[in-house]
Amino acid sequence: MSTADVHTLTGAYAMNALSDAERAEFEAHLPHCQTCAEEVAGLQATAATIGASTAEAPPAYLRAQVLAGVTATRQLFPEPSAPVAPVVVLAKRNRRLVQGSVLAAAASVLVAVVVGVQAVQARQELTALRESTAGYGQVSDLLNAPDAKLLNDAGSTGGRGTVVMSPSRNKAVFLADGLPALPSDRAYQLWVVEPGGPRSAGLLNGEPVVADGVANAQALALTVEPSGGSAAPTTTPVIQIPMA
């Protein structure tokens, strides 16, 4: 693989999506390339931020419910070895132990999934859940792009904006952290700044905002607008991240 090709593996490396051979080659290259090292660190930090933003504390009763399921699962005792056919007995015992472990693990996972789904459905409408899932899916997709780039900047009034972009996908995702809270009649609105002027990419509502068609974008800018959004920016951007 050429040196130019190695530089394109930062996104896949940050998401643990490389083969063993690619990983070995990239890790041999990484200590000698400050640009790749900084980009990998930034992508890994963004992935961690995304995961933390969706993390939920488990309900208090979940631990007791899982432990109750474990105690109700019958444990298999080792069978006595048979001198006539030890290999057959060992295979049978291992198979039963594996089956018991799989069933116990499946039961625990099922409990966790059901509880998680119930908690999400109680907190959000189905439409909001679908939009949230689609948004994070595109973040993951961009992070896995071989040409993924990470851009960020501190806001003028506090907080920080982060952009994950992929020229090959012609998309960018904007995430914000620590922005000051706004009155109920105001909202943060994201703009794609192009040579012909800014166009709206949507309102910021706590989820990543996906911007399509960013090939000619000069910057992504965040402004404070009326709660329903504006047709054009009406205030000075609180965050502006150049896309060059």
Score class of each variant (00 low, 15 high):
10 T>I: 03
10 T>W: 02
13 Y>W: 07
14 A>T: 04
17 A>S: 15
22 E>S: 02
23 R>Y: 01
24 A>S: 12
26 F>H: 07
27 E>T: 10
35 T>N: 06
47 A>I: 09
49 T>L: 13
49 T>F: 13
50 I>T: 04
53 S>N: 05
53 S>G: 02
54 T>S: 10
54 T>M: 12
58 P>C: 00
61 Y>Q: 10
65 Q>T: 05
70 V>M: 12
71 T>L: 12
74 R>D: 07
76 L>P: 04
77 F>T: 09
79 E>I: 03
83 P>V: 02
84 V>F: 09
86 P>W: 12
90 L>N: 11
91 A>G: 05
91 A>D: 15
95 R>F: 06
96 R>F: 05
98 V>R: 14
100 G>I: 01
101 S>K: 09
105 A>W: 10
106 A>L: 09
107 A>V: 04
107 A>H: 12
108 S>E: 11
109 V>Q: 12
110 L>V: 01
111 V>L: 11
115 V>T: 15
116 G>F: 11
117 V>W: 11
119 A>K: 12
123 R>K: 14
124 Q>H: 14
124 Q>K: 09
124 Q>A: 07
125 E>M: 05
128 A>K: 15
129 L>E: 09
132 S>N: 11
135 G>L: 00
138 Q>P: 00
138 Q>F: 02
139 V>R: 03
142 L>R: 02
143 L>C: 08
146 P>A: 04
153 D>N: 12
153 D>Y: 03
153 D>C: 09
157 T>V: 14
157 T>P: 04
